[in-house]
């Protein structure tokens, strides 16, 4: 995997929100590579910057937010292009969005227009990126609907988003995202708003489609169960920083960072003994305006070292060969970027 050229390569991405009250450092130097056919998982709690990273890649950050530093290199037919330098409203960026990189948003309800039929919206997306006539586009949309397992696809194409159930709506969204054969799919909490049994269907579908279309997926979620089942490689974020990254097995079976360790211990599991107190992480996530100095996790960290953790932000260092953690507990070599 490491010898292949990455499809998307993010280097030291920094995103800030310029608010009246001050500057919020939403993403603070995040780097990662996504390889073809890989499912790259980003896991983190609210305010960790996982969604902002995704929006920065697609250049759809809302106004007070801006990319202040970093590169987002997309490999396109052998040449690389820096998305961070493109005009968010320019033709080039609009050509990439949807065609090269597609998005499955969290809430399919608010992502579809309620006054256009689902079919019309997908046909519009297809015709934006492919030189086909309306009738051919409808045929493509129909095939996509069949692919994602929507029953009675002809009928569903002419329905509105509010006529579909949550699961069907999310399937339609996936059909729309895949309709232009993107090479990278960003799934931002695609199953958070839906029920467990439907969630299992959607996750299975995403896996199947990924294998068929060889798409790379960036899978963003706060649910550790979902990430364990879906991702090949995982990055754990906390308050805009990467705490730990590595292959999924290493993250779940040999977590190195105290935050990852504590998080894995604290989640209730269907395998746990009932009515036993869970180990907890003390405190709560700080407000982004008063981010702690040094390592952002230090006020809640059980292994906090005074004078060290609160002074410097530890860089991401290679630990145990396959993974990397940003913690002063590990004094190995810095991960070569």
């Amino acid at each position: 995997m490491n010898h292949a050229t990455p499809l998307l390569s993010v280097h030291n991405l920094q995103v800030q929100f310029f608010m009246d009250e001050g500057i919020v450092q939403a993403v603070d130097g995040v780097s990662f590579d996504v390889f073809p056919r890989q499912v790259f998982g980003i896991v983190g709690e609210s305010g960790c910057g996982k969604s902002v990273t995704m929006k920065a890649i697609l250049q759809i950050l809302e106004p007070p937010g801006r990319i202040v530093k970093g590169e987002i290199l997309l490999n396109r037919n052998g040449s690389t292009i820096d998305l961070a330098k493109l005009n968010p409203n320019g033709k080039e960026m609009r050509d990439i969005r949807g065609a090269q990189i597609a998005l499955i948003p969290q809430e399919p309800m608010s992502s579809f227009s309620p006054v256009h039929t689902v079919g019309d919206q997908i046909i519009e997306a297809i015709r934006l990126h492919q030189p086909v006539h309306a009738r051919a586009a409808r045929q493509i949309a129909l095939e996509m609907f069949r692919d994602v397992g929507i029953p009675m696809p002809e009928q569903r194409l002419d329905e509105y988003a509010w006529q579909l159930s949550g699961g069907l709506r999310q399937r339609a969204m996936i059909a729309m995202a895949l309709s232009c054969h993107p090479r990278l799919l960003i799934a931002d909490e695609p199953t958070t708003a839906i029920d467990v049994t439907t969630q299992a269907q959607i996750l299975r579908l995403l896996r199947k489609l990924q294998e068929e279309h060889h798409t790379a997926i960036i899978f963003i979620t706060h649910d550790l169960g979902v990430i364990a089942q879906m991702a090949d490689y995982v990055q754990v974020m906390y308050l805009g920083l990467v705490m730990e990254e590595g292959p999924v097995d290493a993250i779940f079976h040999a977590p190195k960072h105290p935050y990852t360790q504590a998080l894995l211990r604290s989640i209730p599991s269907v395998h746990s003994t009932p009515r036993v107190n869970l180990p907890t992480i003390s405190g709560s996530i700080p407000h982004p305006f008063n981010r702690p100095s040094g390592c952002p996790f230090h006020p809640r960290c059980p292994q906090f070292i005074a004078g060290k953790c609160d002074k410097h932000i530890p860089p991401l260092r290679s630990v145990g060969g396959v993974q990397a953690a940003a913690c002063v507990l590990y004094h190995d070599v810095e991960v070569p970027r």
Partner: peptide
Amino acid sequence: AAVPVPDPR
């Protein structure tokens, strides 16, 4: 069976 278990294995 539908609950995703936080264990990749």
